[in-house]
Design a protein around this nucleic acid. Structure first.
Length: 800
RNA sequence: GCCUUCGUGGCGGAAUGGUAGACGCGCUGGACUCAAAAUCCAGUGAUAGCGAUAUCGUGUCGGUUCGAGUCCGACCGGAGGCACCA
């Protein structure tokens, strides 16, 4: 159809800009609604059709909420620190800030072309000094609270990126950025004491409406486990080796102990170890293995027996061997375990390989074949004999605590957040080191610590940040004594800027704090937060931790930042595979907007399928949606001069108002679009429609296809602009049908269908059912066992 | 291995335990046209039949129910997450 959709779209986008149609006010009598979509990384590749999907989805929701009288905050900004900009800088030897500016410009233009109702007056980038000033300020808050500390730590190290990584960024033993297997490296790092919030992060989930799978992912990541710490004394030494166990009831089955190769006691008692060379060789090997190699479960167990040191089992005084093996992790529990080969698969495998005793203490299974990990009655366990698992654990803890050889303990997989990166493109950590005074905070009036330009953006081979080469920046004076001091040259991780950005949106230009308290109190929680599943355990956990900390410091008024979290599905290529340049299946939203228009692209992406599930792209599907909009356009030729709704459309119209409203607010966009298609089909069957008929279908479609609907509403003089109109209500009395066509089943098989009045008398419905020829055919001459009439639904006849 | 999910036409996908396949794509036939595109009309799960209709049909096998895509159990397959966490 030839109408100039590009001109129409441009016209309305310009108009909305001019009248500030989507500006959210911080002072309002209206009820607030805060919709947030994760801000994008403005990469050079530009917008992806996946962005269009989630942005449009939340946009249509925001538009309805506004029309329903809410003061809606729907902001957009840029998460612009991080790898791609830095990679580009390294390659082209340019300061990343300029490149980032260019990318943001492109991204923003692409987003603007889609007619999304973002409040652009609140836009910012995490790389703006006005923004990262406050990121640095908050770091100092962590420091003041004792939750930011520098520590010599075994950290995850990516040999390719030459930087340290948090545990979250090195999940699975590979670097999140480049996929290189990570190794361990001892390094002085800034850490945030996230572990202090482990329980609080689990507890807080109760106050959110996250999807269960997101909650589960977080709970698993935090990995809380309740057990006991038990002290084993070392024979002939005034020393004890502590272990953490969830099964202290199996203590009588302990036949050896295993320390991680990194365990501190190995260094301390070096002189007592007769085979120290062998031990050190093993330690060296473990160090050079990548995390993947170390945690590969299919590999055979390895280990070295420590010759010269033995432990005493505290419950029975038996002497047991101590081994070192890399299947024991240094950073979980105490870094050492008590091994119960009879009832633990890993210990069993180890014991079998090295010929260590296996003593069963729980009845069941056959320990000559495998470790028995099931429940059962305790045996060979003196005072625990005859007890079940729960009782035995309780009794043992009581025993341990009474004899001061152990206590009940809780352990978490969640570690402190490694917050240092030896990279250039990140927020400088605002700390100064003075030989005399130690670590000092950069004074508040000197914030932000501006990221300077450097001669080279590459990470250095010695594992220091490129910033360390900028002498005039590094060398400074100590805020405490005024003497010579050096700046911290590590930068913050990519996740820092995104850990509080939703707060800044509430008051983006605030100069006295991260945001004004009144603004934060007004906007409160984000009502709906949309983002990818890949952020369920990283961004979302960091952000919640950060916010809970701010809450505890009295800086923000709410403890949980996000009320509801939803995740969109991916848009795959036409070949059902993830879109990628190498597969050549990337669809560029710009091209689609040019060819079919933003409205058609938006409608298609809403229609493509279940919002939360992956869907594959189909250009024919997009064409179909363009056709739908063309048909909507053509309705103008059918306008008559009658008032109100057409009588015969009233019921359908009211039903559609209800359906579209409910569907969009519950994010069932595909069925919202389809119900509008159904309504259009009804309109098309008629010779003419009224202005009111036309306006309502345009208004219902407006949140999804905002430009063309405004245009048609205007040129046909149907009513005020939709951005200035209240969302329509439906008339309950009009959506009730007067009659229904219902099925008649005989012995569960459909044999006929009859028309009945609403709530028609049961006897009369039965009568109609039995009058049907095809029903008679299956019931005549048979015993009618029973007849079930479900009002307005179905008649079910059972015969014999 | 554990956890979470999902299995419906040629395709994307609809279905509060109540007439499976809405809506869209594609395809077939027709109208309009010199022709094409666009548009409009009709048809479109499989099998049999001119047809009314019948049988089969929501991954497989069972179960509950008057009635199961939907609930329960076992299994098969795909996707995602976790995984030597003591």
């Amino acid at each position: 159809m030839n109408y100039d959709f590009s001109a129409i779209e441009k016209k309305w986008q310009k108009h909305w800009d001019e009248i500030n149609a989507f500006k959210a006010e911080n002072k309002s009598d209206k009820e607030k609604y805060y919709v947030l979509v994760e801000f994008p990384y403005p990469s050079g590749a530009g917008l992806h059709v996946g962005h269009v999907r989630s942005y449009t989805a939340l946009d249509s929701l925001a538009r309805i909420k506004r029309a329903q009288g809410y003061n809606v905050l729907f902001p957009m900004g840029w998460d612009a620190f991080g790898a791609p900009a830095e990679q580009y800088a390294i390659k082209n030897h340019v300061y990343p800030a300029n490149m980032v500016k260019e990318c943001i410009k492109t991204f923003k233009n692409q987003i603007k072309d889609l007619g999304l109702s973002f409040d652009w007056s609140r836009e910012f980038a995490t790389t703006d000094p006005e923004y990262y000033k406050w990121t640095q300020w908050q770091f100092l808050e962590f420091y003041k609270a004792g939750l930011a500390y520098k520590d010599l730590k075994e950290i995850n190290w990516c040999p390719k990126c030459k930087t340290g990584l948090s545990n979250e960024d090195a999940a699975g033993g590979v670097c999140e950025r480049c996929g290189t297997p990570t190794t361990k490296k001892l390094k002085n790092q800034w850490m945030l004491k996230m572990s202090a919030y482990a329980d609080s992060l689990i507890e807080g989930l109760k106050d959110t409406e996250f999807l269960d799978k997101i909650k589960t992912a977080q709970i698993n990541w935090i990995g809380k486990s309740i057990g006991a710490e038990v002290d084993f004394s070392l024979k002939g030494l005034d020393e004890k080796l502590s272990v953490f166990t969830t099964r202290c009831d199996t203590l009588f089955g302990v036949t050896f102990m295993v320390m991680s190769p990194e365990h501190k006691l190995l260094e301390k008692y070096k002189s007592h170890i007769k085979n120290i060379e062998e031990v050190e060789k093993y330690q060296e090997e473990a160090k050079h293995k990548s995390e993947i190699e170390r945690t590969d479960m299919t590999k055979e167990k390895t280990g070295v027996k420590i010759d010269g040191i033995k432990a005493i089992n505290p419950v029975n005084g038996k002497e047991i061997e101590i081994w070192i093996s890399d299947y024991v992790l240094a950073n979980y529990g105490t870094g050492a375990i008590m091994a119960v080969p009879a009832h633990d698969e890993r210990d069993y495998e180890f014991a079998k390989k090295f010929g260590i005793d296996i003593v069963p203490v729980i009845e069941g299974g056959d320990i000559s074949k495998e470790a028995y990990v099931g429940d059962g009655i305790h045996i060979n366990s003196e005072f625990l004999d005859g007890l079940g698992k729960e009782d035995a654990i309780n009794k043992m803890i009581e025993f341990l605590e009474k004899n001061k050889i152990g206590k009940k303990t809780v352990n978490y997989k969640l570690q402190d957040w490694i917050f240092s990166r030896q990279r250039f493109w990140g927020e400088p950590i605002p700390m100064v080191y003075c030989e005399k005074c130690g670590w000092q905070m950069v004074p508040y009036e000197e914030l932000p610590v501006i990221l300077p330009d450097v001669p080279s953006y590459e990470p250095t081979d010695n594992g220091e940040s490129p910033l360390s080469k900028v002498d005039e920046w590094v060398n400074t004076t100590c805020p405490c004594c005024g003497g010579k001091a050096k700046r911290e040259t590590d930068t913050m991780p990519n996740w820092a800027g995104s850990s509080w950005y939703w707060i800044r949106y509430m008051d983006p230009h605030c100069e006295t704090g991260i945001a004004d308290m009144d603004a934060m109190k007004y906007w409160g929680q984000v009502d709906l937060y949309n983002g990818g599943m890949e952020h369920a355990t990283r961004h979302l956990l960091y952000a919640r931790f950060w916010n809970q900390f701010l809450y505890d410091r009295g800086i923000v008024p709410v403890r949980e930042p996000f009320k509801k979290r939803v995740a969109h599905g991916m848009i795959l290529g036409e070949n059902n595979e993830k879109m990628s340049k190498s597969k050549g299946n990337v669809v560029n939203p710009d091209d689609m907007v040019k060819t079919y228009g933003a409205d058609a692209l938006r409608t298609y992406e809403m229609f493509i399928g279940d919002y939360t599930k992956d869907a594959s792209w189909s250009e024919n599907g997009l064409k179909g949606c363009k056709k739908f909009l063309d048909r909507i356009y053509r309705l103008e030729t059918k306008l008559n001069n009658e008032e109100g709704y057409s009588k015969d459309l009233e019921s359908d119209i009211n039903k559609t108002i209800k359906k579209v409203t409910d569907d969009i607010l519950t994010m069932n966009y595909n069925t919202a679009v389809s119900s509008l298609m159904i309504l259009l089909n009804k309109y098309d069957k008629k010779d003419s429609i009224t202005k009111k008929d036309y306006r309502i279908i345009l208004q219902l479609l407006n949140p999804i296809a905002p430009h063309i609907t405004e245009e048609l509403n205007e040129v046909n003089k149907l009513g005020p602009e939709f951005t200035k109109s209240a969302w329509p209500e439906y008339d309950e009395s009009k959506i009730i049908d007067e009659s229904y066509e219902i099925g008649v089943q005989v012995n569960g098989k459909l044999r006929a269908s009859i028309t009945v009045l609403k709530d028609e008398d049961e006897e009369s419905v039965k009568e109609k059912a039995f009058k049907e020829e095809n029903v008679k055919k299956y019931t005549d001459g048979k015993d009618i066992v029973k007849t079930i009439v479900i009002p307005n639904k179905i008649v079910s006849i059972v015969v014999k």
